[in-house]
Simulated scan of single mutants.
Amino acid sequence: MFLLLVLELTDDSNKKKPVVVIVIVSISIVSGMFIVGWIIWFDLVTVAAATNNFSYASKIGEGGFGPVYKGVLETGQEVAVKRLSKSSGQGLEEFKNEVILIAKLQHRNLVRLLGCCIQGEERMLIYEYMPNKSLDYFIFDQTRSTLLPWHKRFDIIMGIARGLLYLHQDSRLRIIHRDLKTSNILLDREMNSKISDFGIARIFGGDQSEARTKRVIGTYGYMSPEYAIDGKFSVKSDVFSFGTLVLEIVNGKKNRGFNHADHDHNLLGHAWLQWKEDKVLELVDAAMEDSYVVSQVMKCIQVGLLCVQKYPEDRPIMSSVVVMLSNESVTLPQPKQPGFFTERSSRDTDLLSRKEKGCTENPVTITVCTMIINFVEEWQRTLTLVSSHSGGR
């Protein structure tokens, strides 16, 4: 079945332009799925059966969006199901944002979004299942961190770098993730890293290189100074987050909440002090013992410090980062002082991600996405009516 939607959308110049959206709908009774264009729309019965009716035993996590469950489809495929909590203040916009990006992003170092479920008040996202959970599950745990020797940590760093390079440069649209952190780096069976959670990501179009928001969202400890203070974000704010990740992977401690007997700096400040005193190898996580390659570790620390420099114009772009990390003959520049290089009170605690209700996404993209979602809801209501009438005959 085909449905042709002709929409009149208004661009920034207030001129109405016709946009044709062709939505292809097919119904599979066997699989219990709706396929709408590039999106697989799972029905509630299928998802409930896969997760044992969203049982506590199937629950594998919880975030601002809502609970996450492990599910097994009738085909035997394992999936992760993010179910929008009815009490969530941030989930609906994030849900729409991930649906917008579903057709845009395909890369081995990005978690694949398989589809979604919209039925009644339910809003769910279905992902490929990552059996080894997230990066923070390993590197910040004294016991599990020993399962990540240096060669694997270096592979994880390279995977994140390549995924971020794809988002910034190689995908059809420039994507700014805005919430890159250890808990959003998932690990597959072979411990390969995959970037996840695009709920607050932004799409940059054309020659756009920077944007500003009045409501800053993300996770403190990974935010760049210009974003946390002025609401400015760009590829360079993602680069800052990446640099923080690199230093955390090397050190095995969180940036925010980092403690040291000699000072009250965070991990970035501590790394900078060690760099200036030529003691960078003291940053290496003791859990790695003698498993690391000195030249690789020192290069990663230097790249990490280059990425977290205070001013965005000093930070490298991700294409340069990938070259610096993968090419041993490249000469690296000397890093400058990192952002937030000030001693803070030891009473500071982590602040959780906050939802930005105001959205400055591309209005055409959001409108098209909303129209598709509304169409699916209407189509499901029609199917229900047809089914009820057929059953009454």
Score class of each variant (00 low, 15 high):
223 M>W: 07
312 P>Y: 11
233 F>E: 06
241 S>H: 06
272 W>N: 04
273 L>H: 13
221 G>T: 03
272 W>K: 04
303 V>K: 03
240 F>M: 08
266 N>S: 11
279 K>Q: 14
277 E>D: 15
237 S>H: 05
284 V>E: 06
222 Y>V: 03
302 Q>V: 07
226 E>F: 09
288 M>H: 10
278 D>Y: 05
235 V>M: 06
260 H>G: 00
262 D>L: 12
234 S>P: 12
291 S>Q: 08
221 G>W: 01
272 W>S: 02
300 C>L: 05
294 V>T: 08
287 A>K: 15
247 L>W: 06
247 L>M: 06
240 F>D: 04
256 R>K: 04
254 K>W: 13
223 M>A: 09
249 I>N: 01
264 D>C: 09
236 K>T: 08
228 A>T: 14
285 D>A: 01
240 F>V: 07
245 L>G: 02
263 H>L: 01
238 D>L: 10
237 S>C: 06
306 L>N: 07
311 Y>W: 04
248 E>T: 06
307 C>N: 10
272 W>L: 03
225 P>V: 11
263 H>W: 02
254 K>L: 13
284 V>N: 07
250 V>E: 00
295 S>Q: 14
269 G>E: 06
247 L>C: 04
237 S>L: 01
301 I>D: 13
253 K>D: 00
247 L>K: 04
259 N>E: 11
247 L>H: 05
